Amino acid sequence: MIAIIDYGLGNIKNVQRAVQYLGYESKLTDKQSDIEQADIIILPGVGHFKDAMEAIQTRHLDIILRNIKDKPIIGICLGMQLLYDWSAEGNVEGLKLFPGNIVPITTPYPVPHLGWNNLISENISLSQDVYFVHSYQAEMSEHVIAHATYGTQIPAIVQYKHYIGIQFHPEKSGDDGLAILNQALKGGFSHD
């Protein structure tokens, strides 16, 4: 069973539909017992980093997620950013599950980074673009599996230990987005 964390901010119904379409059983939840019994945890998110962290802390989900040591946690969009140490969006600490920081997108192009963009990766072959909507980004690092170019390099898929982050919306990105989500659910990506 896949636990999709419901903390009041996020595209949870669309993520749940995508997960079910891929053939997985899922549950929208903020309950510790559900999260601890799940095989995989998805942390979705849309909105402001500080608001999201406050909602997560109010429900004690930060403590619950930090205590998960043996199963995949997949962050999607804002959920990916929440996995990191700190964000400039609100100047607040994140879950500190993933090393690095979230910073404003610095580009000559309009911000937010909104719409369709291709991914660059040696590990993933895609036939179409994927859908982004965000104003902040993770810093580039050795944990980046795929990135987008938007006047700067924007990490799009990251992986560190059993944590996977997907900056774009796989549930809104057609067949390629679903294939990437499915690969994350099956264990992740190679750094080859």
Rank of each mutant, 00 (worst) to 15 (best):
G188N: 14
M53C: 13
A148W: 04
L114V: 15
Q153I: 06
L126I: 13
P104G: 08
A148F: 05
I164W: 01
H162Y: 12
K71P: 01
I73F: 07
D129I: 00
S141E: 02
D70A: 04
R66C: 04
T149I: 10
G94H: 01
L61N: 04
H143A: 11
L82K: 02
P104T: 06
L82M: 08
D70F: 01
A88N: 13
S87Q: 05
V111E: 00
H162N: 14
H147Q: 15
H147V: 06
G90K: 09
H143R: 14
N118L: 02
P108R: 05
S135R: 14
L95I: 12
A156H: 14
E122C: 03
A52Q: 07
S87I: 05
G187L: 13
K69R: 15
N101I: 13
V103I: 15
I120P: 04
H143D: 14
T58S: 11
R59A: 09
I73S: 00
K69C: 09
H147D: 03
P110E: 04
K186A: 11
Q167E: 11
F168S: 12
I164D: 00
M80C: 12
G100L: 09
H162T: 13
E54R: 14
S87F: 06
I105D: 08
D129H: 11
M80E: 03
G115L: 02
R59T: 02
L181M: 03
A146Y: 07
I105W: 05
P170V: 12
I76S: 04
H169S: 03
I56E: 09
G174T: 02
A148N: 02
P155S: 12
A138D: 01
L178Y: 11
P108L: 05
H147T: 08
S87V: 05
F168I: 10
E142N: 12
